[in-house]
Computed example of a mutant assay.
Amino acid sequence: MFVYILYSEKRSKYYVGQTANIEERLRRHNLGIVPSTKNGSPWKLVLQIEVLSRSEAMILEKKIKKRGAKRYIDNQFGV
């Protein structure tokens, strides 16, 4: 399982999600299949974190969303 952060330059927005297949999920986001991201294409993958289970992915996704994706990235990588 992966927790991932996408960025849309078009909307200047981040999106946080989880999936078992990053490539397929990114493809679906960029095709406009995912309602919450259909207006932001193209989305770029800016971070992916592999975790051991779906429950761990859900916990990390919630943590990132609560903090904010940009702040999470900045805190993790000292930007």
Rank of each mutant, 00 (worst) to 15 (best):
S53I: 03
Q76F: 02
S12T: 06
Y14P: 09
R67E: 15
K13S: 13
Y4C: 04
K62A: 13
E23D: 15
T19K: 11
F77N: 10
S55E: 13
R25P: 04
K62C: 04
R28Y: 05
L52V: 03
R27A: 13
V46I: 15
E23Y: 11
V3I: 11
Y72P: 06
I64Q: 06
L6Q: 05
Y14I: 01
K38A: 12
M1D: 06
R11E: 13
G68W: 06
Q48G: 00
H29D: 06
K63F: 11
K62P: 00
Y15C: 07
S36F: 00
E56H: 10
L47P: 00
A69H: 02
I5L: 10
K13R: 14
A69S: 07
E61D: 05
I64R: 00
L31V: 00
L6K: 01
I73G: 01
Y72N: 07
R27W: 08
L60Q: 07
M1H: 09
V3Q: 03
E23Q: 14
S55M: 09
V34Y: 04
L26Y: 03
I64S: 02
I59M: 07
I64W: 05
R27G: 07
H29V: 03
E50R: 14
E9I: 05
K13A: 14
I5E: 01
S41L: 00
S55Q: 13
A57C: 05
K70A: 13
Y15E: 09
G32R: 09
R54G: 04
Q18P: 01
F77T: 01
L45F: 02
L31Q: 15
E23G: 13
M1A: 09
R25G: 03
Q48M: 07
E23K: 15
A57E: 04
E56V: 11
G78S: 14
N39E: 14
R27I: 01
S41E: 12
G32M: 04
V34E: 11
P35H: 04
R11C: 05
H29R: 10
Y15W: 10
A20Q: 14
N75M: 09
K65R: 14
V3Y: 01
R27L: 11
R28N: 14
G17E: 11
Y7R: 12
L6V: 06
Q18T: 08
Y4P: 01
K38W: 02
L47K: 14
P42G: 06
G78C: 06
W43H: 06
K65D: 01
